[in-house]
Deep mutational scan, measured.
Amino acid sequence: TQTTHELTIPNNLIGCIIGRQGANINEIRQMSGAQIKIANPVEGSSGRQVTITGSAASISLAQYLINARLSSE
């Protein structure tokens, strides 16, 4: 079954999640098997909405990979 998880990434950290020309986010997508959508910046908001869709296992793996990127910054 597909589930969806949403999280907010601070604007100053979204770059390390996306990577150069989307390299990091594509790697996270491939490794986790989850669909990951990053919302466009919202004016006045300090973060970007990230939506992860997939199986429970792929979502938790995607979250783990995202958190690993954030903590390495």
Rank of each mutant, 00 (worst) to 15 (best):
T1K: 07
T1Y: 10
T1N: 15
T1L: 14
Q2G: 13
Q2W: 13
Q2I: 15
T3N: 14
T4I: 05
T4R: 08
T4S: 12
H5I: 14
H5S: 14
H5N: 07
H5V: 15
E6Q: 15
E6V: 15
E6W: 09
E6M: 14
L7N: 01
L7D: 02
T8H: 12
T8D: 15
P10Q: 03
N11M: 06
N11Q: 08
N11S: 09
N11F: 10
N11D: 15
N11H: 11
N12E: 07
N12K: 12
L13C: 07
L13R: 09
L13H: 10
L13W: 06
L13Q: 15
I14H: 03
G15A: 09
G15M: 12
G15R: 08
G15L: 04
G15T: 11
C16W: 09
C16Q: 12
I17R: 00
I17S: 02
I17E: 01
I17K: 00
I18K: 04
I18Q: 01
I18H: 01
R20A: 13
Q21R: 12
Q21W: 05
G22F: 05
G22H: 08
G22I: 00
A23N: 07
A23H: 14
N24R: 14
N24T: 12
I25L: 10
I25M: 07
I25H: 15
N26E: 11
N26Y: 00
E27A: 07
E27R: 12
E27V: 06
E27S: 11
I28R: 01
I28F: 02
R29Q: 14
R29F: 06
R29D: 02
Q30R: 14
Q30A: 12
Q30I: 15
Q30K: 15
M31S: 07
M31Q: 14
M31N: 15
M31G: 05
S32L: 02
S32N: 00
S32W: 00
G33Q: 07
G33R: 05
G33I: 05
A34R: 02
Q35T: 12
Q35Y: 06
Q35E: 10
Q35M: 09
I36W: 00
I36C: 06
I36F: 03
I36G: 01
I36D: 01
K37R: 10
K37D: 11
I38T: 04
A39Y: 10
A39C: 11
A39Q: 10
N40F: 04
P41E: 12
P41W: 09
V42I: 12
V42K: 11
V42H: 07
V42A: 10
E43D: 08
E43V: 14
E43R: 10
G44I: 02
G44K: 06
G44F: 07
G44Q: 05
S45L: 12
G47I: 04
G47P: 03
G47R: 10
R48V: 09
R48N: 04
R48P: 02
Q49M: 09
Q49T: 11
V50E: 02
V50T: 00
V50S: 00
V50P: 00
V50W: 00
T51Y: 10
T51G: 03
I52D: 03
T53M: 10
T53H: 03
T53F: 05
G54V: 01
G54P: 01
G54W: 00
G54Q: 00
G54K: 01
G54R: 01
S55A: 06
S55I: 00
S55C: 06
A56V: 10
A56H: 11
A56S: 11
A56N: 10
A56C: 09
A56Q: 14
A57W: 06
A57Q: 14
A57K: 14
A57N: 13
A57M: 07
A57H: 13
S58M: 05
S58R: 05
S58Y: 00
I59C: 14
I59E: 02
S60N: 06
L61Q: 14
L61V: 10
L61F: 10
Y64G: 15
L65Y: 09
L65S: 03
L65V: 01
L65Q: 04
L65H: 15
L65P: 01
I66V: 05
N67Q: 05
N67T: 08
A68D: 14
A68C: 15
R69K: 15
R69Q: 11
S71Q: 07
S71P: 13
S71L: 07
S71M: 14
S71G: 10
S72H: 10
S72E: 15
E73M: 15
E73D: 15
E73L: 12
